Amino acid sequence: MSFISAMLLSAVSSQVTPANNPQIGDIHKETIVNAVAVKRVEPVYPVQAARKGQEGWVELSYVVNENGEVESVLVENSSGIRSFEKAALNAVKQWKFDPATQNNKPVKQCQNQIQMNFLLNNAEVGVSRRFLGRYKKLITKIENNELEGVPEKLEELRAINLGNFTENSHFWTAEARYYYKTGEKEKELEALNKVAYRGKEYLNRDMYVASVVRATILNLEKNKLKHAMLMFDKLSQTKGGESHTKQLFPYIDKVEAFIADESKQIWVQGEISERSIWQHDLARSAFTIANVQGSLTSLEVRCANQYSVYDVKQGLQWNIPQSWQRCRVYVHGSKGATFNLVETSSTEQTPSTGKA
């Protein structure tokens, strides 16, 4: 575990363009009353998915505007079935709300997340024999380091159905294990995040706990500190995770101190996904973008009651009022484009070079 301490204390030189400092106005000076749904349209279960016996889930983020309408809907994550994503998007776009108010005046409510589960009434519980046989053979190949042809086998396993949440959860553990063996940590973490948030009810306890522990460590390695703390909280609430929680606690304590020490920067590597988006939960209230390789088209900041879209400019520092709270950044661009998001001090005029 010593690499975590080293990660927190080390500095690696990297040049950042001098930053400008636009101040974003603080609108949170009165009590906010949250938006209230007055019309919710249920998603239509895709016919082909139902015929195949497929189940799944979709996580969405959306904004409720001053008129109570839903706008700027994004798919943040899903079980991977595109027809479910389309159905969820179509449903949420039809929702209506009594808008949020500030001092009796309608305002936007900008950080809203919803998970839509697609479940069949008569779906099989557990895994099918067809899935189980292929899964066991695949895991054996991975554990024996016989990695040639594994990506194709993973796609075959995905294609045969992944008929329910139990099969989905086991598939993600296989996917994570393969990426562990190949050293593709970002893809491993993506699979483990799905296990951590969706697999607790569908995996045996030891497998689930091991997945959450690994996800916590990877988030720490990659300086996704806010997410690491969320994973740690999930682990601490899981029976069977007590010894791991005790082992990780000193490092989480250091993370909290590190976030509070604004003399150190938090460097996070970003890469645009197949959905042409990348997202990050901010641990601090200021950040800049650096070392862009490829095309980035726009940047969104979504907080509790503030939503803003910007052009992406390297070296420009975004300063977010503390009162906005719970801010998440979305970067849009071309698949594969890479960059660094650097969380800095809100009072810092020119970010120093270095990587924390």
Rank of each mutant, 00 (worst) to 15 (best):
M1I: 11
F3A: 08
M7K: 09
T17C: 12
A19E: 09
N20I: 14
N20V: 15
T31N: 11
T31A: 11
V41H: 09
S61E: 14
N65G: 13
E66G: 15
E76M: 13
N77P: 01
S78Q: 05
I81T: 14
R82I: 13
R82Q: 14
N90Q: 12
K93S: 11
K93M: 09
K93Q: 11
W95R: 10
W95Y: 06
A100H: 13
V107K: 06
K108M: 10
N121R: 00
R130M: 05
R130V: 08
L132N: 10
R134I: 06
T140G: 15
E143G: 11
N145I: 09
L147A: 05
L154G: 00
L154N: 01
L157E: 01
T166Y: 05
S169H: 04
W172A: 02
A174Y: 02
R177G: 06
Y178K: 04
Y178S: 01
Y179C: 00
Y180N: 10
T182L: 05
T182E: 14
G183N: 07
K185T: 12
E186H: 13
L189W: 02
E190P: 01
N193W: 02
N193D: 04
A196F: 02
V212S: 10
V212I: 14
I217D: 11
I217C: 09
K224Y: 07
M229E: 04
L230K: 06
E242N: 01
S243Y: 02
K246Y: 07
I252N: 04
D253T: 03
A260T: 12
E262M: 10
Q265I: 00
W267Y: 07
I272V: 06
Q279T: 05
H280C: 11
S285I: 02
A286S: 02
T288H: 11
Q293C: 05
L296E: 08
S298W: 09
L299H: 09
V309S: 13
K313I: 13
G315A: 08
I320V: 00
S323Y: 00
Q325P: 00
R328L: 03
S334E: 15
T338L: 08
T344H: 12
E348W: 04
